[in-house]
Amino acid sequence: MDTSNIYHIIGLMSGTSGDGLDMAHCRFVYEQKWSFSIIEATTVPFPENLGKKLNQAHQLSGEELCLLDREFGTWMGEKIKEFCKSYQLRPDAVASHGHTVFHQPQKRLTTQIGCGWSLMQTCGLPVINDFRTLDVLLGGQGAPLAPVGDHYLFEAYDFCLNLGGIANISMISKGQRKAFDTSPFNLLLNHFAAKKGLPYDDKGKLAKKGKVIPELLEQLNSLPYYENIGAKSLGRENIENSFLPLLENRNAEVEDTLATLVRHYAEQISKVVLEHSIKSPSKLLITGGGAYNHFFIEVLSEKLGDKAIAIVPDREIVDFKEALIFAFLGVLKLRKEANSLASVTGASRNSCGGTLYLPDLTA
Score class of each variant (00 low, 15 high):
Cys160Gly: 03
Asp201Ser: 02
Glu302Met: 11
His58Lys: 06
Thr362Ser: 12
Ser277Glu: 04
Gln106Trp: 08
Leu21Tyr: 02
Leu358Ser: 11
Ala146Phe: 06
Ile317Val: 15
Phe46Asp: 01
Ala95Val: 08
Ala338Asp: 14
Ala95Arg: 06
Leu68Cys: 09
Leu216Asn: 01
Gly346Met: 13
Val44Cys: 12
Arg177Gln: 07
Val148Met: 15
Ser35Asp: 14
Pro359Leu: 13
Tyr292Asn: 11
Asp319Pro: 06
Asn228His: 13
Gly165Pro: 08
Leu189Trp: 03
Leu187Arg: 05
Ala327Arg: 08
Ile166Phe: 12
Gly289His: 03
Ala207Phe: 05
Arg70Ser: 13
Glu155Tyr: 11
Ala342Met: 14
Leu206His: 00
Tyr225Asp: 05
Gln112Leu: 08
Arg315Met: 14
Lys271His: 14
Val148Ile: 15
Asp2Ala: 07
Pro184Asp: 04
Asn5Thr: 09
Leu361Asn: 07
Arg250Pro: 01
Phe328Cys: 07
Pro214Asp: 06
Ser280Tyr: 03
Glu218Lys: 10
Ser282Asp: 02
Phe320Pro: 00
Gly204Ile: 07
Leu189His: 08
Gly290Leu: 02
Phe243Arg: 01
Ala41Lys: 05
Leu134Ala: 14
Lys205Trp: 01
Ala338His: 12
Arg177His: 01
Ala41Gln: 12
Asn241Gln: 10
Thr16Val: 09
Gly235Trp: 04
Phe180His: 11
Met23His: 11
Gly288Ala: 09
Pro144Trp: 00
Thr42Lys: 13
Asn221Phe: 04
Val148Gln: 08
Leu138Trp: 11
Gln56Pro: 03
His25Trp: 13
Glu40Lys: 12
Lys203Ser: 15
Arg108Thr: 11
Phe180Ile: 01
Gly20Ser: 06
Leu216Cys: 07
Leu153Asp: 03
Met120Asn: 08
Gly142His: 07
Asp256Gln: 08
Lys303Trp: 02
Asn162Val: 02
Val254Pro: 01
